[in-house]
Nucleic acid binder design. Structure first.
Lengths: 212, 212
DNA sequence: GGTCATTTAAAACGAACGTTTGAATTAAGT
DNA sequence: ACTTAATTCAAACGTTCGTTTTAAATGACC
């Protein structure tokens, strides 16, 4: 049982319990117990509870943001090659699809996604600022891309509507099993998730493209 | 200083601190101190912290929901009189406008609104269920009304899109001073709030009316 | 003014929290 | 095998929490 093992088990346990109970309510005792580690291990490996949250966020969010950023760049590059404006739906899809795919594919990250769903509007400025600092560049990138796609709208209005988009999406990812309730299913399955994702994309695209 | 005085001061202080710090982080000690009451007063007048939250929610939410419900009924009645279908925008406006007007008008309730913005997606099932039980009838009423307004869409799809609507709106009310950042203002003012409200109504109306 | 219920007050309860300590244990390097 | 660094462990630190208790103060009513 090496150092890396314990660190990863701590990150996994923290991710799961932060997701289920929130940052404040999930105690280091519960996290270290779930990770089969000693209570002091969290402070030894990360330096404190806040630093543990930071590590949990960065482990998943940095790769996810890179993926979303790359897809936005691909949409912009294709539009440039074709000599057209980027399409709103393609940009929104580039942003939203990886987020929900992340929840289906990676191990344990289905619970992570609900952390960021709540971090966005957390009452705790510590949690909120940690998250916002990590997504701010991506948010600006998407905003600028949407300004290209919607030249008839002011950047201010696009900003406002992008804010609504974040709200609609954040609401969907606050609970791991949100998508299945739309179809009345009790067990989680990929089809429900894809149904919700496509409908969300259609919804916010229509909202973003609404006449001024 | 009568009993009513203390109860009201406790509700006001709890509302403010629950809003700023969340249910778990806001302690009864901080609340009773802010209310200029003894620590034991919260348990004496309400029976416990959970019951205090319940009282805080009911005090504001019952009148607000009545107001929203009445306005939805008015839209439906007007459509029936005119022999037409109710309009989506009118129904959404009936639901959203009182919520934001509530924030501007009533004393102290600007902070309350951010409580319900977060309660909707709270990780704490106690907070979440308390809120959901209070809004479920109104939610069903709005859903049924929207089904009348959008007969070409399935109730299931309308439900999904109404869920997105709740997310977009909930995101806007999580912070008292959210509306002003759209216009770059530092101080809160009614115009920013109305700007956001109207744009939110336009955004979700377009999303709800999007072709299937 | 005296009686009784209501409300306020100070103090303490046990439990849970994040963090720290110092010794014991394990792994790594020579 | 020995030394040294890294890791794990049990225990305790001081704080804060929601709640309860018991007495004092305040109110209403006859």
């Amino acid at each position: 049982m090496t150092q890396t093992d314990t660190k990863i088990r701590l990150l996994d346990a923290a991710e799961s319990l932060f997701s289920q109970q929130g940052f404040t309510s999930a105690s280091l005792r519960a996290i270290t117990t779930a990770a089969q580690a000693n209570l002091a291990a969290a402070n030894y490996h990360f330096g404190g509870k806040e630093a543990l949250l930071s590590a949990v966020l960065e482990r998943r969010l940095l790769p996810l943001n890179q993926q979303r950023s790359d897809r936005i760049d691909q949409v912009l590059a294709a539009a440039t090659t074709a000599g057209t404006r980027p399409e709103v739906e393609a940009l929104i899809r580039a942003f939203i699809e990886p987020t929900f795919a992340f929840r289906r594919d990676k191990n344990g990250s289905s619970e992570f996604i609900s952390i960021i769903g709540r971090a966005m509007t957390s009452a705790d400025p510590l949690v909120r600022d940690l998250f916002l600092a990590l997504v701010q560049p991506l948010f600006s990138q998407l905003h600028q891309a949407l300004c290209q796609a919607l030249p008839q709208l002011t950047p201010q209005l696009i900003f406002t509507r992008l804010f609504f988009t974040m709200g609609a999406m954040g609401h969907c990812i606050c609970f791991p099993g949100m998508s299945q309730i739309f179809n009345g299913n009790s067990a989680s399955n990929p089809e429900d998730d894809i149904f919700m994702t496509n409908n969300l994309i259609r919804f916010v695209t229509a909202g973003l493209e609404a006449p001024c």
